[in-house]
Every structure is written in structure tokens, then in C-alpha cells.
Design a protein around this nucleic acid. Structure first.
Lengths: 188, 188
DNA sequence: AACGATACGGAACAACGTTCCGTTTATCAA
DNA sequence: TTGATAAACGGAACGTTGTTCCGTATCGTT
């Protein structure tokens, strides 16, 4: 059912090569590395890359899928294992930030106006916003955070704060995100 | 002294045309509009644009210089006219956010890794970080905010949070920046 | 072995930033 | 007014990227 039409052997081989090459090039050059560089590293033509991954977003999504899944699955775990929901939320966001800052250029690629990374943006949001929403709902229930906080807005904000992190010692995304999350707390 | 070598009349005329054309195109298309579009709107060749503004950053800087100056000058005024320094800081940052969100793509252009906007980035930082630093120093003195807050980091954070604002009704940069600034408060 | 479907490679095109140089124009002195 | 000279101009041309397209090669099957 999942493989009504199994791909040809060479196609499967190339897809694997491309994923490995892309992962390596992303580490060296960042997520917005030239398509030709990835194709060259994988030993395929540029046409092949588009056949397997119609948009850049598809390629990036495929490369980081595992880590996004891990982040998504950590949400419920943290909620269950933390003393209070606000702590769980803070810890989960730390995970997300750690993920983004170690992937050069990934945060910048998440902008909605970046049409070539459209599917990447969609995937991140579809997968992570619900997880974040559960954490936020729990934190609201205990009165830990402002009631008008939305998961989408928080994710966008955190993503934005991670842009350019890791390239400038004077800018520490983790600390700044800490301020933001602290600011979500109910004051009274 | 300021004009040892006065420019030729046509050069001055073209510079003015370019500034006006750039301002108009930036409103329509955003700050990263194609150079050719600006040149066409101004009725000059592409070479001319580079002669007057060697980098894109120079052009953008010239277009927005007045507003950046106004923002910079508002710092001391707000500090003098507010009840407490933290309020002054919050108000000043509101001004900065309002400026950024109304200029399509400007916040995104401020990234340090965006080499073509290098001078823009430098100008913003040179002009605004000292102003912000004074506000922060005052707020620290009254114990209003965390002592490890730095002006540079705060400016970068606010700038990042403004990216993509104004294009998505679900993301309100002002509210998010409000969380951030709230998070700077000393909890004690 | 041979055939059809699948997939490939890389040339070709488009969009953009940037440079370069032959031509035009402004300025000023004679 | 005119001619010389420096200043400035225009836009063709080049390099870099993203993306498409199609003739060719390869795989799987009969």
C-alpha cells in the first residue's frame, strides 16, 4: 500500500546520496547552499535533485525530519516529567532553540515569505505548533502564562530570535529566548 | 569645507531622483527590490546607481537616515519624560518596532551575514546601540532590569522579532516584543 | 534480447547583482 | 562662443544562482 510503484534501484540510490550530500553541505555552507554544490557532492546532475525534491524546502525537510520528529515527541514527555507546565514549556523551547542554532541558516529559511522554503515552513509549523499548543494550554490552565499567548506566535518568535545565532559571540539566542519565555509568565 | 568639490548638477539631480525612486520602490516591493527596478523608476542606468551608492546598504541607509535619526533622538527625550527608565526603554523600543514593521523587508535586511546590507547594519548599530545603552544603563541603575542585559543583544533581538511582521495577521511583532521587554524586568 | 517506462545529466534559460568602458554632458577658461 | 577636460552616464556584458527541458542512458520485465 505504501509502495504500489517501487522506485527504480538507481533512483533510490540517488535519493540516499542526495540526502547525505545535502546534510554534509548544509553543515559546511548552511541551508541555503547552492543547488549545484549539493548535486556535485552527490555526484548527480542538477536535474536529478529537482526530480527527487521539487523544492528546496522538500530537501531540507527530508534532511532534518528525524530531528524535528524527536523535538515533537519530546513535548509530551517533558510535560509529564516536569514539576510545572511553564518549566516544561521552557525546556521544550530550549530543545527547539538548540536544534535551530546548530543548523546554520535554518532559522532564516523558515520565513513565510521565503517561497522556496515553503514546504519546510509548513512542515515545521504542522508538526511543532500542536505540540507547543498543548504545552501552552497546560501552562495556561495552571495560570502560569498570559492567556493570550498563541503557539503559532511563540514559535515564530523563537524561530526569529534564532536567526544569525552562532555567528556572533555578542548575540546569544538562548539567553534572549529566555527573556521572551520569562516574559510570558503571569506577573501578579 | 563640506563641499570642497561640489558635484556636478546632473549628479546631484540623479542622486535625488534615485532616493525618491528607491523610497517609492521600497514601499511597493520592499527593501530587497531589484536594482534595475529602482534605476528604471529613477530614469537612470544601473551603473549610475552604483556610482552614487556603492552598496545596497548605502542606498537604504540614505533613504531611511531621517527616520533613524529621529528614533535615535527620541531616546534621551523619552528618558527625561518618563516616570521610570524601564517605561522609557519600552516606549523607545516601541518606536523602533513601529519603524521596522512599516518598512517591508527592512528587518530581514539587518542580518549581519547579509553582506550587501553591511553598511546598513553598521549604521543602525552605530546610531542606535548607544542610545539603547543609555536607556539600559538608567534602567539598571534603578534596578528595573537584569544587569546582564546588553544593548547590542537587545537591539538584535528586537530586530529579529520584527522580521516578517505585517504580512501575517497571526504574528504581531509588537506583542511579542512586549513579552521580551517584560522578560527583562527584575523578578526578585 | 529487446522493449517500454523510468530516471538521468547537463545544457539552456531566466533573474539578479555587479563591473566596465565607450559615449555624453557639464564646467570653465580662453 | 567655443573647445578642452574631467565628471558622470547608460547599458551591454559577465558571474552566480535557481529552474526547466529534452535527448540519452539505464532499469526492469517479457
Amino acid at each position: 500500500m505504501t509502495d504500489l510503484k517501487p522506485k527504480r534501484a538507481d533512483a533510490r540510490r540517488n535519493e540516499k546520496s542526495l540526502l547525505e550530500a545535502a546534510a554534509a553541505v548544509f553543515v559546511e555552507q548552511g541551508v541555503q547552499a547552492p543547488v549545484r554544490d549539493i548535486a556535485a557532492k552527490a555526484g548527480v546532475g542538477t536535474g536529478t535533485i529537482y526530480r527527487h525534491f521539487p523544492t528546496r524546502g522538500d530537501l531540507v525537510t527530508a534532511v532534518y525530519r528525524h530531528q524535528v520528529e524527536a523535538c515533537a515527541e519530546a513535548g509530551p514527555t517533558l510535560l509529564a516529567g516536569s514539576t510545572d507546565p511553564h518549566t516544561a514549556l521552557a525546556r521544550w523551547i530550549d530543545l527547539f532553540v538548540d536544534f535551530l542554532v546548530t543548523k546554520h541558516g535554518l532559522a532564516a529559511a523558515l520565513h513565510p515569505d521565503n517561497t522556496e522554503f515553503d514546504t519546510l515552513h509548513t512542515y515545521f509549523l504542522d508538526r511543532l505548533v500542536p505540540v507547543c499548543a498543548d504545552l501552552i494550554t497546560a501552562a495556561k490552565a495552571t495560570g502560569d502564562i498570559h492567556p493570550d499567548t498563541t503557539a503559532y506566535e511563540l514559535m515564530r518568535a523563537v524561530g526569529n530570535l534564532c536567526i544569525g545565532a552562532g555567528e556572533d559571540p555578542r548575540y546569544d539566542a538562548r539567553r534572549v529566548v529566555g527573556w521572551l519565555v520569562g516574559g510570558l509568565r503571569m506577573v501578579e
